[in-house]
Simulated assay, not measured.
Amino acid sequence: MKFIPAMAAISSILCATPFASADSLHTHWEKFKAHRAFHHLSADGQRAFQDILKARDILQTTGKTEAAIPALYDAQKRLAAAEKADKKFQAAENDLHPVPQHPVIANHQPVVGQTDWLPVGGEFILSETLAPEKKAAIVSANAQLKSGNTDQAAETMKVVGADADFIMALAPVTPVQGAVYRATVFTEGHNPQEAVAALNQALNSVVFVSESTIETLAPAAPAPAKK
């Protein structure tokens, strides 16, 4: 399956927020922009999408199903953990407003009715009205985030201050879990093409919204503990 530009944008944003260093970034971020978005992000959701991307890339480039299975199992476990945590939000998809920088892709399948959404990634966005030095700072900060240099990114963004906009990637929990489960079954059955199609459905379900949208969403009720 062709890796289209829209999917490349999804991959870029979902990988832009470093997972292991998120707590470090929280401290620095709050110093200069206390109300901003990083505290919304789901660490388990982020890692799950890293696993999804990893499994999809293995299957797509090599077709080696055995190599992709560990990432799929990890994705399932991390999605289950994210579902139990307090980072998800409940909303109907038609109440979300995708940002113009990243509209939903052509084969996106909307979710009908109220559902739980996980914030699984984000990035700073450029505005043409920003001064050149602030544009350069945002470009540098996004590159630093992607490479995991969170302390440097926080320092870099001090130049931008309150002028920075942040967009977030939201993933619908139930459809993503279903897609990953199907991908796992196909992978265990040595059917990499169908597994890739299922994983692309998970990735295609992501909706990119402004940070302010998150503030308007109702926190979802925690999933009941399994006995």
Rank of each mutant, 00 (worst) to 15 (best):
D95M: 08
L79G: 02
A195F: 14
G189S: 08
S42A: 05
Q46F: 03
Q46A: 10
E215S: 15
G189A: 11
S147Y: 09
L25K: 04
M7K: 07
S12E: 15
E215T: 13
H39A: 08
N191K: 12
K31A: 11
L199A: 08
Q114C: 05
G161F: 05
A37I: 07
R36T: 05
V159D: 03
V139H: 12
A220V: 03
E188L: 15
L41H: 06
A137Q: 03
W117S: 09
E30T: 14
D74T: 03
M1W: 04
V104W: 06
P172Q: 11
F49H: 10
P103Q: 00
Q144P: 06
F3A: 04
W117V: 01
N94M: 03
A22L: 14
T216D: 08
D23R: 09
G178Y: 06
F186Q: 13
H28I: 09
V173N: 10
E211H: 01
V104S: 02
R36W: 08
A141G: 06
P5T: 03
V206I: 14
K87C: 13
Q201L: 14
H97P: 01
D74C: 06
S210V: 00
Y181D: 13
P172L: 07
I138S: 03
M157L: 14
S205F: 01
Q177W: 07
P219M: 09
S21R: 09
P132K: 07
V180W: 00
H39Q: 10
F186K: 13
A220H: 05
L41E: 02
K134W: 03
N142H: 05
Q50T: 00
A225D: 08
F89K: 06
S127Y: 01
A20D: 12
T213P: 02
A202W: 06
E211L: 02
A91T: 10
M1Y: 08
A221F: 09
L126Q: 03
V160G: 09
P119H: 03
